[in-house]
Design a protein around this nucleic acid. Structure first.
Lengths: 143, 143
DNA sequence: TTTTTACTTTGTAATCGTTACAGATTAATT
DNA sequence: AATTAATCTGTAACGATTACAAAGTAAAAA
């Protein structure tokens, strides 16, 4: 995982994305917050450091980062698009009680289907829903 | 797959969902159109048969059907929620060229992760993205 | 069958996330 | 330092979904 400003800059240069303060800040934010933030969360937090930052810029930035493959979209619920800088294959678990999204390791590459023999597969996604251990505990306490 | 009006009625009764003309029509539509329609598609098509049908009703109906487990939500892209009456486990493939969504058989149940040992899993989803055979063909013809 | 009751439907208005757009700004090049 | 082309900003527009209240209807009770 790249984390210093300089390393992030190099990542962008490699992908031929023009460097800008805002882009670097968004990228940095994503490396520091692996909790799959929404645009709203990124916006609220980054505004403290970059008061002039606009939401449109975050959308634009995320678009280029996604297009270049540096960032990944997580769509589990409609109207709650989330972003993840961890592009290696892993699954996502969304707790239906607290809403938190957990990463988990799972062998996605081994998922195959004869039905897709003639398809070109670019992207594989796996997500589960249920209740996380913390919420299970508090539910049991109430009972 | 249930398909006659009577069978669909029984499904609803079993789930203690009150029967209404609109609900049966939406249910019937879903059994006849396994192409993962959006609310918009359901609305436009069903209005031909039920001119007074309102979009809000479709949203309401789908909510109860989902809650009762008769219908499943497919969220692959944000702002494009789709619905599927096939609730048995299967994967979805979305073609990034034509937008079509294909079903495929895949052993979702075997997907396991030690990271989720203490989690209660209610729902497992798998979706791939890429290019479907038809689009691959036409792309090659152009080249 | 009629009456009652609670649920459902409808249409409009409100909401919220996202995108479009145009003028101001800025990174990179000359 | 000047130029150029891409980026940023703020506002307005858009589209999907939800909220709400009045009208209508299915099912249960009389």
């Amino acid at each position: 995982m790249k984390s210093t400003f300089e390393e992030l800059s190099n990542e962008l240069k490699k992908k031929k994305i023009r460097l800008s303060h805002q882009r670097l800040k968004v990228l940095e934010y994503l490396t520091l917050h692996l909790c799959h933030p929404t645009v709203e969360q990124i916006y609220v937090d980054l505004q403290k450091e970059v008061p002039t930052l606009s939401k449109t810029t975050i959308y634009n930035t995320l678009s280029s980062l996604i297009e270049s493959g540096l960032v990944r979209v997580i769509t589990i619920e409609d109207h709650e698009t989330r972003y993840d800088i961890r592009t290696e294959n892993h699954g996502h678990f969304k707790c239906e009680s607290c809403g938190e999204i957990y990463d988990f390791n799972v062998d996605i590459d081994s998922l195959q289907s004869v039905d897709l023999n003639n398809f070109k597969i670019n992207d594989k996604n796996v997500y589960f829903k249920g209740i996380c251990p913390r919420c299970l505990l508090s539910i049991n306490k109430i009972k």
